[in-house]
Simulated scan of single mutants.
Amino acid sequence: MAPSSMARVSGRAGPEAPIDLVQLATNTLGNRELEVQVLNLFQSQSSSTLERLAMETDVLVKLDLVHTLKGSARAVGAERVAVVCETLEGKMKTSNDAATEGLVAAVNEANSYISELLEG
């Protein structure tokens, strides 16, 4: 298949989708190969970030991890993940033990959706 945006070939696009495929296509100039690479990178990085976040004790390092994940999420169109990161950043600035369950759920949802996109 010639490079084309997943946004044009996926039937699961829409405001309820965990990944905004139009935003992804815009950020990758509609290059499907680049979209696949970026999505794979996000899956890997987000999973690794969650693992590091669970083990980290330094609040500043945790803040940096969440902030970096927020930027990555926005780059692939995972706006729910980005919003959860933004909220978590605010909570982490006032509490050393801010809960990350919401972030884990949002990342898992986005990564499941990405897996469906890439396999289908």
Rank of each mutant, 00 (worst) to 15 (best):
L53D: 02
L41Q: 13
C85E: 04
V76P: 06
E56Y: 12
S115Q: 15
V66G: 04
G102C: 06
L117S: 07
L34W: 13
V76T: 01
R32F: 11
L65A: 07
L34M: 15
C85D: 01
R32D: 12
A98K: 03
R32I: 07
L117Q: 08
D97I: 03
S44G: 10
S115M: 14
K91C: 01
N96L: 03
A110F: 12
Q37E: 15
S47R: 14
D64M: 02
V61W: 04
L34V: 15
N111E: 04
V83Y: 05
S44V: 09
V107P: 02
T28S: 12
R32N: 08
L88M: 02
L53C: 02
L69H: 09
L103I: 10
F42I: 04
L118V: 09
G90S: 09
S115H: 15
S46P: 02
C85Q: 05
C85V: 02
T100R: 12
L65M: 10
S112T: 14
L63C: 06
V84R: 05
Q43G: 14
R74M: 05
N111V: 09
S44M: 12
S115E: 15
E35Q: 13
T87Y: 00
A78E: 03
A82W: 02
T57P: 00
I114R: 13
G30P: 10
R80V: 03
L88D: 05
L69E: 07
I114M: 13
G77N: 03
T57H: 02
Q43L: 15
L117C: 11
I114A: 11
E56P: 12
R52W: 00
R32P: 08
A73V: 01
E86W: 01
L50W: 00
K70W: 06
Y113R: 12
T57F: 00
D64F: 02
V83K: 13
S95M: 13
S47N: 11
M55Q: 08
L118R: 03
A99D: 14
E79I: 10
L65G: 12
T94W: 09
A106T: 09
D97W: 00
V104A: 05
L53S: 00
L60R: 00
E33W: 07
E56A: 15
M92N: 12
M55L: 09
A105C: 06
A106H: 08
E33Y: 05
E116L: 14
L53V: 06
A98Y: 04
T28I: 07
E79N: 07
E33N: 05
T87R: 11
L65Y: 09
L65W: 07
N31P: 00
T28E: 06
E119G: 08
G90C: 11
F42V: 01
L103A: 05
E109V: 14
E86S: 03
V36D: 02
E116H: 15
N40A: 13
V104R: 08
L60A: 00
R52H: 00
S46I: 01
A82T: 05
G71E: 10
A78Y: 10
E79A: 07
Q43A: 14
R74I: 04
A73N: 00
G90E: 13
H67K: 01
L103R: 08
C85G: 01
N96W: 01
V84D: 04
R74Y: 05
N108D: 15
